[in-house]
């Protein structure tokens, strides 16, 4: 009866494991590529939906150890964002992509494929290559990048990018010399000045240099550049500004991705660069498993208007102190159909909403109430040791289906969002953690 009322969900444990094949998109009206927007598939970095899936297998022990590493790295990212929001003015970005290379960690981030540049086709190329070419006889070079709504400067590794100054990547290195539409940003240009804290002087030939210092000490440096970016099947963003990295030392980028697509609120981000065309509106859907696909959309194509009634809305807050980050106000949490008994004042601080922070963090008073309600609904399962900051974990060995209490987040204005089962557990642990203080 509770399940029917939406208070609980019954999940077959088999559905929580990635399949060996890509189940593709769950398509609703309007959820298809459109000439009026930029629409691109979004996938886990590894798994059957990735264009270049990994063949590596992980043992259960590997997964447990790597999940702890992933959560530790995520905490560093969260700490860094909190520092930025207190007014710290350094130029570090909140990257917490792990320097370790386990399978589990790689599943904590989401990637999309973009085409960069225009490479002239030789006449001897195959029919397939010709089919992919642009009308002017050139084609883009596919690059797999992490999407990050918590940073502002996009970049990819560019030739030359020797190891170990750079990291291995699955796609061929982008070669500016082979692109007919590539240009370095001149040092004296407005685009170079707009780099602000990410500007790193000029090269000997007066090309604008960029540098990003990530929160964990990693860096990416190189030449700030223009080239055409193709996202999805229809649209080309001409003169996209991005970092052409020739070194990303100390790197947190052991992922074999080409770089990062920045969707933050700062002036350098893709969102701001495409403001005229797409009106500073973008959306994404993160897939529940590595065997399913999500999407990234820039703009609002008219055919998506029919979806509007199915959206709930809450005010989006921004801060001139840290324009990179997007924030919302959480007002209440409902567990198994019952609101937590938490004074509204506990939720008075905002929450950063971010595509690359993995675990949600709540004020301690709210977290403790959530944990108590969740544990009380999960007493039929064996408890398991904590994993890093995740202190509510279970041993589901031998369990064929899990009865999970529903969790809904209620945002300012009454927007109530029911979490998917994939949004409640990370591995076998409740995927929430507390902040350091209710007063943060």
């Amino acid at each position: 009866g509770d399940a029917a009322a939406g208070a609980y969900m019954v999940i077959a444990t088999s559905t929580m494991k990635p399949k060996t094949f890509c189940s593709g998109h769950k398509v609703a009206p309007g959820d298809v590529p459109s000439p009026n927007s930029t629409w691109a598939p979004l996938h886990h970095l590894y798994g059957p939906c990735s264009p270049a899936p990994s063949s590596a297998n992980s043992t259960a022990a590997d997964v447990a150890a790597s999940m702890a590493d992933m959560v530790d790295d995520d905490q560093r990212r969260a700490d860094y964002i909190q520092k930025r929001l207190t007014g710290a003015t350094d130029d570090k970005q909140p990257m917490a992509f792990s320097s370790r290379t386990s399978q589990y960690e790689k599943n904590g981030q989401y990637a999309t494929n973009g085409g960069l540049g225009s490479v002239p086709h030789l006449k001897s190329l195959s029919t397939t290559a010709t089919t992919n070419s642009a009308p002017d006889g050139t084609s883009a070079v596919t690059q797999t990048v992490i999407i990050d709504s918590g940073s502002d400067v996009s970049w990819v590794q560019c030739k030359p990018c020797p190891l170990p100054m750079c990291h291995r990547q699955r796609d061929p290195l982008f070669d500016p010399a082979m692109s007919t539409t590539y240009a370095a940003v001149p040092c004296t240009s407005a685009a170079c000045a707009q780099l602000g804290p990410y500007r790193r002087g000029c090269s000997a030939n007066a090309q604008c240099q960029f540098g990003i210092n990530y929160g964990d000490g990693s860096t990416a440096t190189g030449t700030y550049s223009f080239d055409d970016l193709t996202l999805g099947p229809y649209d080309v963003i001409r003169g996209f500004r991005f970092g052409c990295a020739h070194a990303d030392r100390g790197s947190a980028f052991d992922y074999d991705v080409a770089g990062s697509l920045a969707l933050g609120g700062g002036s350098q981000s893709l969102v701001q660069q495409t403001a005229t065309r797409y009106g500073r509106v973008f959306s994404y859907c993160l897939p529940p498993t590595a065997s399913s696909l999500g999407f990234l959309v820039l703009g609002v194509p008219p055919e998506r208007a029919q979806l509007i009634p199915s959206f709930v809305s809450t005010p989006l807050l921004s801060s001139s102190m840290a324009p990179t980050f997007y924030r919302v106000l959480l007002r209440a949490i409902i567990v198994a159909g019952r609101p937590l008994a938490v004074p509204p004042a506990v939720f008075s601080a905002s929450s950063v909403i971010d595509s690359s922070t993995i675990i949600s963090r709540l004020p301690p008073t709210a977290y403790q109430a959530l944990r108590a309600a969740f544990r009380s609904a999960m007493t039929m399962y064996r408890a398991a040791p904590p994993v890093s900051i995740l202190d509510t974990c279970y041993d589901f060995t031998g369990v064929r289906s899990i009865t999970l209490p529903s969790i809904a987040l209620v945002f300012d204005g009454g927007a109530t969002v029911n979490l998917d089962a994939a949004g409640i557990l990370l591995g076998s642990c409740l995927a929430f953690a507390p902040t350091a203080s209710d007063r943060m």
Binding site: Q109, S149, C285, F311
Partner: peptide, 30 residues
């Protein structure tokens, strides 16, 4: 601040509508 992490965003369509100062959500979108 707190955080709304990417685990909790799974299967939601999350719309960042900057000019309207609105964040929109749609469940079971992917």
């Amino acid at each position: 601040p707190g955080f709304i992490g990417n685990v909790q965003q799974k299967t939601l369509e999350v719309v960042y509508d900057v000019p309207a100062k609105a964040m929109r959500f749609r469940t079971a979108a992917c």
